[in-house]
Simulated assay, not measured.
Amino acid sequence: MGIVLETSDPERAWNAFRLGITALENGNDVSVFLLGDGVEAEEITDDQFDVRNRMEEFDEAGGELLACGTCLDIRNSDGSEVCPISTMNDLLEVVTTADRVLTIG
């Protein structure tokens, strides 16, 4: 499954990673590609929706997490160990190899 996350809305991002974790727990391969505002997900601070924690759980469960390098550059941000800098070719790979692709924006 491929999930393209294009929002920094705390609840939407939190739910995207909850879905990814659930899919991994049920034996699916899951990749999340952060695009546009989605590259800000790792920096979301919200008392109710701990997105960073869900991202780490997703990573620990075996999910693949990628972030658009151009989108990070626009925001003067870098990738991280959990979320490496990626390219449109990586997004194309996610979209063309996944059985299902979900976009959350």
Rank of each mutant, 00 (worst) to 15 (best):
M1N: 04
G2D: 04
V4R: 02
V4K: 03
V4A: 07
V4W: 03
L5Q: 09
L5E: 07
T7N: 07
T7L: 05
S8F: 05
E11R: 13
R12K: 10
A13E: 07
W14G: 00
W14M: 04
W14P: 00
N15H: 12
A16V: 03
A16S: 10
F17N: 00
F17G: 01
R18F: 06
R18M: 13
R18K: 12
L19V: 11
L19E: 11
G20P: 03
I21L: 14
A23N: 15
A23S: 14
L24C: 09
E25G: 07
E25W: 13
N26P: 03
N26H: 14
G27W: 15
G27K: 08
N28D: 12
N28V: 09
N28A: 14
D29K: 06
D29E: 09
D29F: 06
D29L: 14
V30P: 00
V30G: 02
S31R: 00
S31D: 03
S31L: 01
V32K: 00
V32F: 03
V32S: 00
F33A: 04
L35N: 00
G36W: 02
V39M: 02
A41H: 15
A41D: 07
A41V: 13
E42Y: 08
E43I: 10
E43W: 05
E43A: 11
T45A: 15
D47S: 12
D47C: 07
D47I: 08
D47T: 12
Q48I: 14
Q48N: 11
F49V: 12
D50N: 15
V51M: 09
R52G: 06
N53L: 11
N53C: 12
N53Q: 14
R54N: 11
R54T: 12
M55F: 04
M55E: 10
E56D: 10
E56C: 08
E57G: 05
E57R: 07
F58I: 10
A61D: 02
A61H: 01
G62S: 02
G62V: 03
G62P: 00
G62N: 03
G62A: 05
E64K: 04
E64P: 01
L65V: 04
L66M: 11
A67M: 08
C68T: 06
C68K: 01
C68H: 02
G69E: 04
G69M: 01
T70G: 13
T70A: 12
L72A: 12
L72F: 02
D73R: 08
D73T: 15
I74C: 08
R75K: 07
R75G: 12
S77T: 13
D78I: 06
G79W: 01
G79I: 02
S80P: 02
S80Q: 02
S80H: 03
S80M: 04
E81H: 13
V82M: 15
V82G: 06
C83P: 02
C83Q: 15
P84M: 07
I85W: 01
I85A: 09
T87F: 04
T87V: 05
N89I: 12
N89W: 13
D90W: 11
L91Q: 07
E93W: 10
E93C: 12
E93Y: 15
V94M: 10
V95D: 02
V95Y: 05
T96I: 09
R100W: 07
T103M: 15
I104V: 08
I104E: 10
I104H: 06
G105C: 13
G105D: 11
